[in-house]
Design a protein around this nucleic acid. Structure first.
Lengths: 116, 116
DNA sequence: CGAATAGTTAGTCAAATAACTAACCAACAT
DNA sequence: ATGTTGGTTAGTTATTTGACTAACTATTCG
C-alpha cells in the first residue's frame, strides 16, 4: 500500500533542523565534513550520522579525496517531494472542481424546479 | 539556529506512508475516523495516533459531532513545506547564477589575456 | 432500557533516533 | 618518523515512535 519508500526517507531526512541547515549550506556550494560541522555544537560522529541519512535519502552525494570528504547537494533529489505535494494539491483541486460542478448542478436544478 | 519547529512537525508528519495515505484520502473530502481506518490493517488506537500527529502538525482539522469525529484537510498547512523547498531552490539557483558569472568572468579574462 | 457503534484512554513493548565518548586509521606536513 | 588533521568505527544511553491489547465513555438505535 505504501509503494513509496523513497518518500519516507526523503521526508524523514528533511524533518530535522540540523539536516535542513546542512542542505541550506550545501545549496551554496560543496563543502567538506568539517566545514559543515563547524557551525554546529555537536560531536563529529553525530554530524556524520546526519550526513549519512542525507546520503541514504539521496539528497547529497559525497566523495572522498585524500583524507577529505566533500559533500554536494543533489538538486534533483527534491523532485519526488515536490511531486507528492503537487499530486496532493491536484487531488484537492480536483475535489474543489467536482464540488463546484455539484453546486452549479444544484443551482441549475433549482432553477428548472421553480420554472416548472 | 533551528527557528522553525513547525517544519520539523510537518516533515515528520509527512514521513509516514499511512499518514500520507490519510491525507490523500482527505484531499478527496472530509471523512470520519472509522472511514479513514477502514483501508488499513491496523488497530484503531494506532490510527488515532497518526491522526493526532497530523492534527498537531496542523495538516488536518477535526471536529466531533455526536459520536462521530470528522476529519478535514487543511490545504494551507502545506505552504511552509513548499516555502522551504522554494527557498532551497532559490539558494541553489543563486549559486548557479554566481557560478555562471564566474565562468563568464573567466572567459572574459582569457579573451583579454590572449588579446594582449 | 439495553445493545451496538464510534471513539478514547491507559498501559505495555520493540525498534528506531540522535546524541555522546573513546579509540582508531589514513593522509599530509615538518 | 612523528605529529597533526580529517574522518571513521564501535559501543553506550536516553528519548521518541509506532504498534498492540484491554478496558472505558459516550452516543444512537431497536
Amino acid at each position: 500500500m505504501s509503494a513509496e519508500p523513497r518518500l519516507d526517507a526523503l521526508f524523514q531526512a528533511l524533518a530535522d533542523p540540523t539536516r535542513r541547515a546542512i542542505l541550506s549550506q550545501l545549496a551554496l556550494g560543496p563543502a567538506s565534513v568539517s566545514d559543515l560541522a563547524q557551525p554546529f555544537d555537536m560531536a563529529l560522529p553525530s554530524l556524520m550520522g546526519h550526513l549519512r541519512k542525507l546520503e541514504d535519502a539521496g539528497l547529497i552525494d559525497t566523495k572522498k579525496d585524500g583524507r577529505v570528504r566533500t559533500c554536494a547537494i543533489v538538486p534533483e533529489a527534491f523532485a519526488p517531494v515536490r511531486g507528492w505535494l503537487d499530486e496532493q494539491r491536484a487531488l484537492w483541486e480536483g475535489r474543489l472542481d467536482r464540488l463546484e460542478d455539484y453546486v452549479l448542478q444544484l443551482m441549475k436544478e433549482r432553477r428548472d424546479d421553480s420554472g416548472s
